[in-house]
């Protein structure tokens, strides 16, 4: 098993928490009912529409300082909550 230093662990956790909090915030603002946010939940089934995702990505750019949707190197985009979180974590490494 790959050893992850505590410092990075904290940052990864904080990225995860930031993203989940932002998803809940956008859903509340836009009056959307969220599905339980499990890592394998497809993004299309979260209850968020494309406007919500657009707002989410912009908020995360402000909160995390990265917009992997604009800078994505290999063009592969996330399709689940877990992939979305990894997408940002990779962009922040």
């Amino acid at each position: 098993m790959k050893h992850i230093p505590q410092r990075e662990m904290t940052r990864f956790m904080s990225t995860r928490l930031t993203i989940l909090a932002a998803i809940r915030e956008v859903a509340t603002e836009q009056a959307k009912t969220l599905a339980p946010l499990a890592d394998d939940l497809p993004l299309m089934e979260t209850g968020l529409d494309s406007l919500c995702f657009a707002i989410l990505v912009a908020r995360l750019e402000e909160a995390l300082g990265a917009d992997p949707f604009t800078s994505a190197g290999d063009g592969r985009l996330p399709s689940t909550i877990g992939e979305l979180i990894a997408f940002y974590e990779n962009a922040l490494v």
Partner: peptide
């Protein structure tokens, strides 16, 4: 407008 990668603009 503010540029956005999902919807083009917000």
């Amino acid at each position: 407008a503010r540029r956005n990668p999902i919807t083009g603009a917000l």
